[in-house]
Design a binder for these strands. Structure first.
Length: 267
DNA sequence: CTCAGTGTTCAGTG
DNA sequence: TCACTGAACACTGA
């Protein structure tokens, strides 16, 4: 379930298991959507023999800094709606959704699996200055802007705040449930337009974005460890009619996504 | 059988 | 060209 906190958890997983190690074998499953037009075999060939210096992330995008200075190569992964990383040693851990696997010299394996074929595996040459990463806005975990810089783009726009929170060119890494959680905790109606937001609302939006993302990263995106007061537990999979406090939850379609919100709180 | 789903992109509209 | 909306993408699981 990849939004920023999940991707950050996989970044840490990869750092722990493969940093400083060399890829001695690459296994790929043919998939012209995940690997784009480029052949999966060419990707595998390019990755073989690389040493992983560092695992990096911006928003929901993850890549590895590999190779020697002057001859660096950057394997890149996007997890779409259903992708994930797994670290293991035994080939029996593989399943039919495994799209790519790195084997390292010490027997560690790192697998990218994706049941739905929405996602991407690529090779980048200069991650931060090339698409898609170059088009991203700020990463709220790594670089939360000042209140002034956070607010400026929002108050110019005439779209519902829910849509703007999902816009990766604004805040990279915020997805559907995080956007709903931010709006609930900040007590803002999801259909409120950017230009209608008050100073106090913008301030709450920024601080809730930070606290929600920091908390979910701190618990490695483990849903069971999210605070019980979060709307998340009741909106996810539409498991309840009300929040823990008995506030009725409404489901609407906003910004092209199902939006869970609490009319009695978000006015 | 139908439909919603954690994301992104692109065509279409005004 | 811009700002914004909504459909499409692929596939699983309820």
């Amino acid at each position: 379930m990849p939004e920023l906190p999940e991707v950050e958890a996989w970044r840490k997983l990869a750092e722990q298991h493969v940093r400083g190690k060399t890829i001695i074998k690459v296994t790929v499953r043919k998939d012209e959507i995940i690997f784009d037009q480029k052949s999966h075999t060419a990707w595998a060939r390019a990755c073989k023999g690389l040493a992983v210096n560092e695992v990096c992330r911006k928003g929901k995008h993850l890549w590895m800094d590999c190779g020697d200075p002057g001859a660096k190569v950057f394997p890149y992964f996007h997890f779409g709606m259903s992708g994930a990383f797994h670290a293991y040693r035994d080939e029996s851990e593989r399943d039919k959704y495994l799209k790519a696997e790195f084997l390292f010299e010490d027997g560690t394996r790192l697998g990218y699996r994706n049941a739905r074929r929405i996602g991407a595996v690529r090779l980048l040459t200069d991650p931060l200055s090339e698409e898609p990463i170059s088009k991203l806005g700020f990463d709220p975990f790594l670089n939360l802007p000042s209140l002034a810089d956070f607010s400026a783009p929002l108050r110019k726009r005439r779209a519902p705040i829910k849509s703007m929170l999902l816009d990766q060119k604004f805040a990279a890494g915020v997805g559907n449930w995080i956007a709903d959680e931010i709006l609930y905790q900040a007590k803002i109606h999801p259909r409120k337009l950017g230009i209608e937001l008050s100073e106090a609302e913008l301030k709450r939006l920024r601080s809730k974005m930070k606290s929600i993302i920091d908390k979910s990263v701190a618990v490695d995106a483990d849903k069971a460890r999210f605070p019980k007061t979060w709307l998340f537990h009741y909106r996810w999979g539409k498991t309840a009619e009300t929040t823990a406090k008995g506030e009725p939850i409404e489901f609407d379609r906003i910004g092209g996504r199902t939006t869970a919100w609490v009319p009695s709180v978000q006015t």
